[in-house]
């Protein structure tokens, strides 16, 4: 919830945001009407993946950052596979 509020405040101030969240947060992300969200199939507490899995971390982060260019409207939620 906290990060959702940060995203809404930043977007209101013309600072774009993208959120990387675990899939378990999908409902709360949708309810908060957030701009760009990448959902990852990871366990709570490790949204970028397992410790030291650099390749996985990088792929997730890169996919999220690309959403800054591709998303066109609020509520853009994408699953990372």
């Amino acid at each position: 919830m906290s990060v959702g509020h940060v995203a809404r405040a930043f977007e209101d101030a013309n600072i774009a945001t993208v959120i990387i969240a675990v899939k378990s947060f999908e409902t709360r992300m949708k309810m908060m009407s957030l701009p760009r969200v990448l959902l990852t199939p990871q366990l709570l507490g490790r949204p970028l993946g397992n410790p030291f899995d650099e390749q996985q971390h990088t792929e997730i982060l890169n996919t999220a950052i690309k959403m800054l260019e591709t998303a066109e409207q609020n509520g853009t939620i994408q699953d990372f596979h």
Partner: peptide, 21 residues
């Protein structure tokens, strides 16, 4: 974890901001 968190209460907004880059 998904089943559990789906049941939690949360802030609910009808709409939200979007700043296009």
């Amino acid at each position: 974890q998904m089943d559990g968190y789906r049941e939690q209460k949360n802030f609910d907004y009808d709409s939200g901001p979007f700043f296009p880059l």
